[in-house]
Amino acid sequence: MSTRVGVVVFPGSNCEHDVVQAVGSLGGEADLVWHGATTVAGFDAIVLPGGFAHGDYLRPGAIARFSPVMSAVRDFADAGGPVLGICNGFQVLTEAGFLPGALQKNRGLKFICATVDLVVCSTRSALTAAAEPGAVLRIPINHFEGNYTCDEVTLAGLEAEDRIVLRYVDNPNGSVGDIAGIRNAAGNVVGLMPHPERAYDVLLGSADGAVLLRSFLAATDRSSSGRLAATATPTG
């Protein structure tokens, strides 16, 4: 049976259909979930897509974290369910406290829309379990507030616990430690600024995002049997 992915739609999300298309093309099933939903029952994995949830009012992600669906997503994540935040979804995950740190405005003051190289730093996550450690993936970014920041203690913790899953090869936005994506301690929650759903087929210019999404689609089996952390290999 294919993995059923719930793609959360906040008012102002705009990448939800890209995720649905990508998941469908890679053998999963995806359905949209309105942010007012109070349950995510029936889904094997949850994606918070890119866009401008609640208009990015106050701060990106600041209001989305109060959407009713987020309590259900919190319970789902606490139970080990795979949760992926892409771009604005990553911002929501940091604001909601699923992941540490924050995304500040890009160094250089520009909105950046470009395809960049990412290196796979950890395979101990729902998003990168099937990727080759050290592999370089070409995936688009499309953001103004993608400059990851956190205090030194948090950064040292992320490094020590192998929680930085993807780094930029040529840092485009000033992110501390060249961080493009991080995971929670258990590895089932991952946030990243790049858009793997825009790079799942060579027709899109790169198919390098497919290995990430395939990892994510397969993460349900790993998390439900509690083997996600145990089977993964730490990498430097």
């Binding site: 106050l58 701060r59 600041a62 940091t94 604001e95 740190g101 924050a102 500040q104 920041t149 956190c150 205090d151």
Partner: peptide
Amino acid sequence: RFLTNPVIE
């Protein structure tokens, strides 16, 4: 809890 993000503000 809401009006600021203490990480950056």
